[in-house]
Design a protein around this nucleic acid. Structure first.
Length: 574
DNA sequence: GCCGTTTTCGGCCCGACTGTTTTCAGTCG
């Protein structure tokens, strides 16, 4: 948690400096530092103690000192100073489309506007249009922006947007003259939340495609309309940007629009060092275009192998690629099973038979049926008696089904005192025990951490489900000391779950990478309560990929027999 | 504010579109 808090302060300093109109490169330095800190897989406090802060990219003597200051005092002199100069609420204004730092500054200095209500009032009284650089159009845009802001149309979970994007692509393929079409941006990188939908197209009739885009029934409003770039807002509130390029520029454009922004900056800096220029149209040596048709070509032009989109976050992937040390991240088709599915035995809606049919459809060869344990009454926790019925049921089905095997598991509650929700003699009968916290979220960090640690140390537990308990956009993680959890999991060889449910994705990419670096096995489970939620499995795989995980790091790449062997071996090492 | 087998100073990614302008700053990605 500490890392996020430090990063947050740096980000705010950067935003405030922007409004103040400070040196843009100084601002970028703060932003870059914030990003580096947020992506750390170790506790920043540890790095500070070891005097290793200055080894981090983008952090020099000055910022290292400032990090230490934040860790010591919780704030920074420059931050406090800026807050006095510029009201913090102005940062909210930056979220309003068409308002950037320059305009926000003018609003504050000329009209003394310091909250949304005042801003709205000033628009309605047409005071804004009279300001230099503003006009009636800007006034209208701000009013629209305020409405959007109030509706909190911020980042949405990837799982919510991905299907929509794929649907739109199918429609455009069918109904307009596109040749290549692909989703780019943070969706292609499979970031856990996304702000907009970026779609890239090649076409010989770009104007027809653009027209079609604006006519899609899903479109509510056209924000910008150009020959090569069109932006619309969909009825769901999300923005969609469409770019059309020449086939010859497909790879360069795809790389460009996939981002991330910081990854792109690094790539282009590398190009400059080699006397090349990269833009969305290609790689150029002087006037001559030397690459651009494919992404591979673009990376190769600056001496890099292809970097999978999920890694393009400027979290060391470029350095790794330069050294030939890019991980061979786990492939989507290497995942053979889903390690966390609920059935009718607890609060799931599907029968075991239905789950088998679904798994076969998805090409999976095993599913771990992990229903809730007895104490979790709200979620239909399974009594000991029913648990043994389920065990028998699974054994019978496994005899009949050859393509898909079920694994007899349980998602066992970690009670508030750290003990487990079934007695040991029952746990011993369960082939796969994944323990989880479902109650007592308000406990202190020490209490929660100790609960999970006692579960990790329990000899019959194999893994911990959704280790931080966060629900994207709804619930913050409970107070848990992740470095300690990682330490104990690593010591005891226990697995941690990447929960693939679209609102959990817990562990997240950064924690998954931290686990991988410590040799902790990871296990992906959809936590499906409805049969179709098993479809979310790729979202969990995406987290693993974003966490630099390779095949060997993920237990779901094991065959049924291998996984059963792993489970047994953990309890009785051979 | 960072960074350096061309550099400890002078660089720091690149382009489309909008709106307010009569040539371009600001915003956005």
């Amino acid at each position: 948690m500490k890392n996020k808090e430090v990063a947050e302060i740096f980000n705010k300093v950067a935003a405030l400096l922007e409004i103040r109109g400070d040196n843009p490169y100084r601002i970028r330095a703060y932003q870059k530092a914030a990003q580096t800190i947020e992506a750390l897989t170790t506790d920043i406090e540890e790095l500070a103690k070891q005097g290793k802060l200055e080894k981090l990219p983008g952090i020099g003597a000055d910022l290292a000192g400032k990090i230490k200051e934040v860790l010591r005092t919780g704030t920074l002199p420059i931050y406090e100073e800026l807050k006095k100069e510029i009201p913090l609420v102005l940062l909210d204004f930056l979220e309003i489309p068409s308002l950037g730092p320059k305009k926000v500054k003018v609003l504050y200095e000329k009209l003394g506007i310091t909250n949304i209500e005042e801003l709205e009032k000033a628009c309605k009284e047409h005071k804004i249009a009279k300001l230099p650089g503003f006009g009636w159009k800007t006034e209208e845009n701000i009013l629209k922006g305020i409405t959007l802001f109030r509706e909190k149309r911020g980042r949405r979970p990837l799982g919510e947007v991905l299907l929509l994007a794929e649907e739109i692509i199918e429609t455009l393929k069918r109904e307009s003259p596109v040749e290549n079409i692909a989703v780019a941006g943070s969706i292609r990188r499979r970031k856990e939340t996304v702000k907009d939908i970026d779609i890239l197209i090649t076409s010989v009739q770009p104007e027809k495609v653009m027209k079609k885009v604006t006519e899609l029934p899903l479109v509510e409003e056209v924000i910008a309309f150009g020959e090569t770039k069109t932006s619309v807002r969909l009825r769901t509130g999300i923005q969609m940007d469409i770019r059309v390029v020449e086939p010859d520029s497909w790879g360069a454009a795809l790389a460009y629009f996939t981002g991330s922004k910081t990854h792109n900056i690094r790539v282009r800096e590398l190009a400059l060092e080699k006397g090349l220029k990269i833009n969305e149209y290609g790689v150029f040596k002087g006037e001559e275009k030397i690459a651009g048709k494919t992404e591979e070509e673009v990376y190769a032009s600056i001496g890099l192998p292809f970097i999978p989109p999920e890694l393009r976050e400027d979290r060391g992937e470029i350095e790794a690629a330069l050294q030939g040390k890019l991980p061979k991240i786990v492939e989507y088709n290497e995942i053979l099973g889903d390690a966390h599915v609920h059935s009718k035995y607890s609060d799931g809606t599907a029968s075991l038979e239905e789950i088998i049919v679904k798994a076969e459809k998805l090409g999976l060869s095993w599913i771990a049926i992990c229903d809730h344990s007895q104490g979790l009454k709200v979620a239909g926790g399974v009594s000991v008696e029913d648990l043994f019925k389920k065990k028998k049921h699974i054994e019978e089905l496994n005899k009949r089904s050859s393509k898909v095997k079920l694994i007899f598991g349980a998602e066992v509650d970690i009670l508030s005192d750290g003990t487990l929700d079934y007695p040991d003699e029952v746990l011993a009968e369960i082939d796969f025990v994944i323990a989880a916290i479902h109650t007592g979220f308000q406990q202190t960090e020490e209490q929660i951490t100790n609960r999970i640690i006692s579960a990790l140390k329990h000899p019959l537990v194999h893994a911990i489900a959704h280790p931080t308990g966060r629900v994207i956009g709804e619930r913050e993680p409970y107070a848990v000391n992740m470095p300690k959890i990682l330490e104990v999991a690593s010591e005891y060889g226990k697995a941690l779950e990447i929960n693939a449910y679209y609102k959990r994705l817990d562990l997240d990419d950064i924690n998954a990478r931290a686990a991988k670096e410590r040799g902790i096995p990871l296990i992906i489970g959809t936590d499906a309560h409805f049969i179709d939620q098993i479809n979310y499995l790729p979202l969990g795989i995406a987290v693993a990929r974003r966490g630099w995980c390779e095949k060997k790091d993920i237990l779901n790449t094991l065959t049924y027999e291998e996984f059963i062997a792993w489970l047994k071996n953990l309890r009785n090492p051979s």
